[in-house]
Computed example of a mutant assay.
Amino acid sequence: RHLVKPGITGWAQVQGFRGETKTLDQMENRVKADIWYVENWSFGLDLRIMWHTLLNMLRHNEENAY
């Protein structure tokens, strides 16, 4: 997880694991999603993440966002 440079968005973020992690379970899910991304990276996956990011922005769902 720490071998990859952070970006503006990511697999964990588009899966809903963003913002403050108030419980250990939330933190574990975020780390698992980040590790899954590193192990399954592809250009297509990055395109999918960008698409989901755009959809989330257009939906303007402020739950769990800053």
Rank of each mutant, 00 (worst) to 15 (best):
W11Y: 10
K32T: 06
Q15L: 06
L45C: 06
K5M: 11
H2W: 13
D46E: 10
T23P: 00
E63S: 08
M27V: 03
D46W: 02
Q15F: 00
T21I: 08
I35Q: 05
I49K: 08
Q13T: 07
F43T: 14
W51S: 01
N61L: 04
E62D: 13
N61Y: 07
R48W: 13
N64Y: 12
L45M: 13
W41N: 04
R30T: 00
P6I: 13
I35C: 05
E28H: 10
T53P: 05
N29P: 01
E20R: 14
H52T: 00
M27D: 06
M50I: 14
G19Q: 06
N64M: 11
N61V: 08
R18P: 06
G10C: 08
F17K: 07
N40Q: 04
A12R: 03
E28C: 02
E62K: 12
N61I: 10
E63H: 04
G10F: 06
D46P: 05
E63W: 02
I35R: 11
I49N: 07
D34Y: 09
Q26D: 14
I49H: 05
E20K: 11
V4I: 15
L58P: 03
L45F: 11
W36E: 12
E63Q: 12
D34H: 09
L55I: 14
N64R: 13
Y66Q: 10
Q15S: 07
V31R: 12
N61H: 13
D46H: 01
L24R: 12
G16M: 05
H2C: 07
H2Q: 08
P6L: 09
K32M: 14
